[in-house]
Write a protein that binds this DNA or RNA. Sequence first.
DNA 1: CCAAGCCGTATTTTCGAAAATCATATCCTT
DNA 2: AAGGATATGATTTTCGAAAATACGGCTTGG
Lengths: 237, 237
Amino acid sequence: MTETMSDSAIRPRKEFGKTIAADVTHRLREEIIACGLAPGEPLRFDVLRERFGVSFTTLREALTALTAEGLVDAQEQRGFRVAPVSRQDLVEVTDARVLIEVELIRRAIERGNDDWEIAVISTLHRLKRIEQRDPEHPLRDPEWNIAHRQFHQALVSACGSATLLAIRAELFDRAERYRHLSANFRPRPRDKAGEHQAIMQAAISRNPDLAVQLIETHIRSTADNVATYAAHLLDTE
Amino acid sequence: MTETMSDSAIRPRKEFGKTIAADVTHRLREEIIACGLAPGEPLRFDVLRERFGVSFTTLREALTALTAEGLVDAQEQRGFRVAPVSRQDLVEVTDARVLIEVELIRRAIERGNDDWEIAVISTLHRLKRIEQRDPEHPLRDPEWNIAHRQFHQALVSACGSATLLAIRAELFDRAERYRHLSANFRPRPRDKAGEHQAIMQAAISRNPDLAVQLIETHIRSTADNVATYAAHLLDTE
DNA sequence: CCAAGCCGTATTTTCGAAAATCATATCCTT
DNA sequence: AAGGATATGATTTTCGAAAATACGGCTTGG
């Protein structure tokens, strides 16, 4: 009876109705995206078992799921490692994102209703609010990352295709890892707040061509930034 | 010493260097695509364990991988089932395929070299050869399915993006399942051989606009066929 | 000195039993 | 008799031990 849903003493909280494997998958994904586990780093079972407090099999399931998402690299019979990064991969992910996101923003603008507009506006509002706390290093703030993800998610959420949304989400995660990779070396962030604001306005005022152009620029210039400031990490691999 | 690599007496062959889990994933994928396991059907461990001769954990890993591919549906704490089919899902998969495949065929035509042309021509040749064996029911011939997959794969293989190729392959598999779903009810196949031939010629003669148009028609008319002849299976779910 | 094969160790992969969770039928209470 | 709690059986989920496989150093023969 003293057991509420969040006896978050230490680790072993686990949301109701969810499997431990799904929980570990989620936590591992976050760590890899945040580059707490470096690209190319071997993922040894002993170490992970210690860190997450679960058994071999459960870990294996999580690693298999992340392999399908492109965040982990399975080397059969020789274990897993964090998916390596490369300039080529960055280019591919960026291109794929542009292709898909551009299409989805068009569909969303065409189909979005009141709820969609409200979601776009409110997620941007929260993002800006959080941004004010530390305008210099937003990427270091986990809450900013969540809010940022949710804003971009909201923008395309009305596109009408769960299939394409799932693919988009996967590519977004892979791109976010590259952003984190370069975050420590980037001198100062460019005017992201302004860009997000402009995208929101183009979307809400139902101007698909402008929105598409802004989104494409947003994605490509972020990738260019990564390629510049993480160059030393991309060429060695 | 009598043990060569293919002592394919019964089941337990396993390619060198591969894990059992990867093998089971592959076999399960094929069965689901061929609708040997019906859409929506519960995937009980006891049954699968019997059928594939592996343990709980190995099965779980395979099911997790297929869940990420959209062929299996995980219901946390309540097991797995074959991903259900629906008209909506068919439309989404078709749309996504057109979006991506159209882009990839353009890139492949622009970048393809001699090896690419040879691959396209030879995979089509093999497909036609196999097709002659049973022109009425090609889908029932596993070899035709493989050859068909390889021809479409070859067409886009020179696109230069492993990322997009992986996404394309996933969508192709999901679409192929729908084709098998309606195969038993389709009166007679339309002129697929001719369509493939035309696509090949447009690609090799480096006519991207024509190739794109043919591919889009090819994909959409296949989907329309499915929607028509598997209607009773799509509306009930 | 080098190459090739071999052995011991480190690590992954697989298994089946045990724990956790869900679904169903049963039994109270009102 | 209806509604709700509870026990029971079926099924999934998790675990750690055991088997399989890869890695690295060592020896041996040329």
